[in-house]
Amino acid sequence: MKVPGRIVAGALFAILLGAPLVLDRYWVDVLNSIGLYAILGLSLNIILGYAGMFHMGHAAFYAIGAYATAILNTSYGVPVLWTLPVSGLAAALFALVVARPIIHLRGDYLLIVTIGMVEIVRIALINDVFGITGGANGIFGIDRPQLFGFKIRQPQHFFYLIWLFAGLTILLFSLLENSRFGRALNYLREDEVAAEGSGINTAAYKLAAFVLGAGWAGMAGTVFAAKMTIISPESFSFWESVVLFMIVILGGAGNIVGVILGAFLVVGLPEVFRDFASARMLFYGLAMMFMMIYRTQGILPPRPRTYRLDGVGEGS
């Protein structure tokens, strides 16, 4: 009997939502981290997976969202969750301005430029740019978010906030994947020249992918700021971008389920390996290497698109 993938996914999600009832707060917090990285990974997946642009600076957008929330909340008293759209817009706008001149760069040249971008953002934050980022101290005392009068503070509370956000992300992005936009991105990933020839404005589509992915990462930044209540530039280093990059590529670039699985592996494994004490990152590095070797396309690569051809070949 073949069970539809949608039902399996739904069942898994339901099991996940029950997890805080049986897990202690540490493991719930690990799941929170995984959820946050899954959201970020999915937003990076639009750029790196669907559109195939080598982007290793996603933490920059995440940082801008988190700082937008922190500044609006601590300096102007805006409730944390209300800053969500502003964070998204701020990150998207930044992406629009920055990506415009570099979008035509290819492969590894784009990669180093995005690395440069995330480093510039981090250095700007450390140097207290415009006098609003708090320098190396970062910004502290960010309020806990309130939802319908309920204050979200325990890891268990955040679990539901984060995973509902993740669920929404999955839903919207799977619609996007099968839209005209998603198909166009796949096309230009596979063959940019042919895509251009078929009338796809590749530069505009690439830019749109960048802006959308950035905006979503910015909103994830809001959740991060709310969860930590303190943010500092160290949280948005180049290494964070590398982690997100590994999540997408290891999980399977272009596949939503793959990226979520990637988040579980890349973020969850160091926690599982804690028993190895100071050797845990050694095993983690080995695991990354061997998983990639054994699943060279990523653990769950996207399946080729299939279409039912109704009425063809049946004769008249």
Partner: peptide, 14 residues
Amino acid sequence: RLSAVVSALGASIF
């Protein structure tokens, strides 16, 4: 190509 990059990152951590 990016699969090898992730393998390289794993090797770096190792």
